[in-house]
Amino acid sequence: MTDTSILNRSCWIFDLDGTLTIPKHDFALIRRELHVPDDQDILGYLASLPSEQSEPLRAWLYDHELEIAKQTDPAPGVKHIIEALSHRGTQLGIVTRNTRALAIVSLEVIGLGDYFAEVDILGRDEAPPKPEPDGIHQLLSQWGAESSDAIMVGDYLFDLQSGRKAGAATIHVDTSEQYLWPEWTDLAIRDLVKLYEMMRCCTDSN
């Protein structure tokens, strides 16, 4: 779908890794190190373990993700689109399967730390991880907004599912241009550069 009318919505919620940043996670490595079965989600698997088993695995995951966060690179076009949204008074939030602390590190590294209030950055400890919609609902409640005001922007199925379950519009950013989940997507776009251009055209036409 290509519903550009959604670009005028007042609440934009982003995934972080692979959406605002260039993806660097080696999920195959993470799964091997944490002994995650092939048919299980990483966070779901850790949550299913007794605390004495999960705590050292969570510690390893945090340390691994911290090193990635320190070396992260901004996605092309990210500064332009976040600046433009901020300038027009858009509510900006992040819902990530990472931790809030690591998300803040990544945002500082890519130069976006000033655009997102800490309370508007929700990690896996602040809300049930995506694809659950709780994080989006929490942000909208904080902002006094409705789901019809919101857009969820992400690069993976869980982002789109959480957005759709929350009643928000969804934008799939996919640099491969395969767009594998059209049934969960309102707008599919190659990258944030194209999204910024489309947003400007949509704004100029109104």
Rank of each mutant, 00 (worst) to 15 (best):
M1F: 10
T2Y: 06
T4S: 13
S5C: 06
L7I: 04
L7F: 01
N8H: 14
I13W: 13
D15L: 08
D17S: 02
L20M: 09
I22R: 12
I22D: 08
H25P: 11
H25I: 15
F27K: 13
L34W: 11
P37H: 09
Q40R: 15
D41S: 07
D41A: 11
I42Y: 00
L43C: 06
G44D: 15
Y45H: 09
A47L: 12
P50R: 02
S51N: 15
E52G: 04
E52D: 10
E55F: 11
A59K: 08
L61E: 00
E65R: 03
L66R: 08
I68V: 08
I68T: 09
T72Y: 02
T72I: 07
A75G: 07
P76A: 06
I82D: 02
E83N: 15
A84V: 07
L85T: 01
S86I: 06
H87D: 13
I94P: 14
N98W: 07
N98H: 07
R100W: 09
L102H: 03
L102E: 00
I104Y: 07
S106W: 07
V109L: 04
V109W: 05
L112P: 02
F116S: 04
E118C: 11
I121Q: 03
D125W: 12
E126R: 03
E126S: 03
E132V: 09
H137W: 13
Q138V: 14
L139Y: 13
L139A: 10
W143K: 01
E146C: 13
G154M: 01
D159W: 00
R164C: 03
R164Q: 09
G167K: 11
I171G: 02
H172Q: 10
V173N: 01
E177V: 04
Y179V: 05
P182H: 11
V193H: 07
K194F: 12
Y196G: 04
Y196D: 00
R200P: 04
